[in-house]
Amino acid sequence: MPADRTINWPSVTTILSAAILIGTELMGAAWASGWAIAGWFQLGSTVETILQVVFGLAALFAIFVFVRAAFRVEPAFKR
C-alpha cells in the first residue's frame, strides 16, 4: 500500500456494519429455510442439516458479493 493512501475508517465501518446486519439476516433465513423445507416434506434431520449447509453457503457467497460491491462503490481509502 503506498504511503499517500490512508484508510477511510467511516466508510470501512459502515460497510462492515452493513455486512454484519445483512449477513445475520441471510444466515437466519438460510437456517430457517432448511428447517422449513425439511419439515414440510418430512425429509429428516440429516437432509435438514444438508439443506441448511447448502443455503448457508449460498448466504456466505451473497455476503461476499455484497462486501465486494460495497467496497467498489464506497471509498475505502483517502488520497
Rank of each mutant, 00 (worst) to 15 (best):
E74M: 14
I15Y: 01
G23D: 07
L21A: 14
A69L: 14
I50K: 07
A76Q: 05
L57S: 10
E25C: 15
I15H: 03
G56C: 07
E74K: 08
A69H: 08
A59R: 06
I22D: 09
L60E: 04
G23M: 09
Q52N: 09
A58Y: 00
V67W: 01
G39M: 06
A62D: 11
M1A: 15
L43E: 07
A30D: 03
A38W: 00
L43R: 02
T13P: 00
R68C: 14
F64I: 04
P2W: 00
L57M: 15
A38E: 04
P10K: 05
T24P: 01
Q42W: 07
L43Y: 06
L57C: 13
Q52P: 08
L43T: 04
V73D: 09
S45Q: 09
T24C: 15
L43N: 03
G44P: 03
F41S: 09
Q42P: 07
V65C: 09
F41A: 14
A32Y: 04
I50E: 02
L21Y: 08
K78L: 14
G28R: 02
L16W: 02
G56V: 07
I22K: 04
V53K: 02
F71Y: 06
L16D: 11
A30L: 08
I50Y: 07
A29M: 06
T24R: 01
A38R: 02
G34R: 03
A19M: 08
A32V: 03
V73S: 12
P75M: 06
V12Q: 13
I7S: 10
A70M: 13
P75G: 11
K78S: 15
E25A: 15
W9L: 14
I15G: 14
A59E: 07
